[in-house]
């Protein structure tokens, strides 16, 4: 890794958004390509942030601060990546299920997915089954992520999966679920393709899901 990419990588780890923004600008000016900066500095840095979180070294605030720093770099890179026709790792549609207004976990997953190189379409909170179906038709995502914080709202997950099946779209998209009451057993029971217990693992699961 070049010194400039190392500075960006460290800036993300330390959550220093101005360091990352300046580092990306400098790297572009010294002929590093946008995809090189993304693939060799920003994505590995957020992957390391995820590992540190799973190891109990980082906590949610540290992840948020790192994600903000990563986004400072992405704000510069994104138009250049689009202009250059560089494809993102994959496309994800995400939202909390109908009746659930709790967005912190969903926002964290969004940040970690972006940090892993995904394009994320965030439908927000309290998303009705038909909105998820519509979003799959409109955006053709590789993955649909849903979360529910409460036992009661968790019951919306199979309803949404059923709506996707009814619309004939179930084979078009992988479905990953999460949230406080959700377990792997529940994911198996409702026919989801995967479950992750936190944002870091969700990003990793999304990446491995694409490979399947």
């Amino acid at each position: 890794m070049s010194t400039l990419l190392e500075i960006i990588y460290q800036g993300v780890l330390e959550g220093d958004q101005s360091e990352v923004g300046a580092g990306v600008q400098n790297a572009l000016e010294t002929n590093h390509s946008p995809s090189e900066i993304l693939d060799n500095a920003l994505v590995p840095a957020m992957s390391e942030v995820g590992s540190l979180f799973e190891e109990g070294e980082y906590f949610v605030p540290e992840m948020l601060i790192s994600a903000r720093a990563m986004q400072a770099g992405m704000a510069i890179l994104k138009p250049l990546l689009v202009e250059g026709g560089v494809e993102m790792l994959g496309k994800v549609v995400i939202g909390t299920v109908q009746g659930d207004l709790h967005d912190i976990g969903k926002n964290l997953v969004t940040m970690m997915l972006e940090g892993a190189g995904f394009e994320v379409i965030d439908l927000g909170v309290d998303v009705a089954p038909e909105k998820f179906v519509e979003a799959i038709k409109d955006h053709n995502p590789d993955i649909l992520c849903m979360s529910a914080l409460l036992t009661t709202t968790m019951a919306s997950i199979p309803v949404i999966i059923e709506a996707i099946e009814q619309a004939g779209l179930r084979t078009h998209v992988k479905i990953l679920i999460g949230g406080a009451p959700v377990t792997q057993d529940y994911a198996d029971q409702v026919g989801a393709d995967g479950f992750a217990q936190d944002a870091s693992r969700a990003a990793r699961l999304a990446t491995t899901t694409l490979d399947k």
Partner: peptide, 12 residues
Amino acid sequence: GFKTSTLVSPKT
């Protein structure tokens, strides 16, 4: 806390 840890670090 939440499912896997404290919401902020034990140090905080």
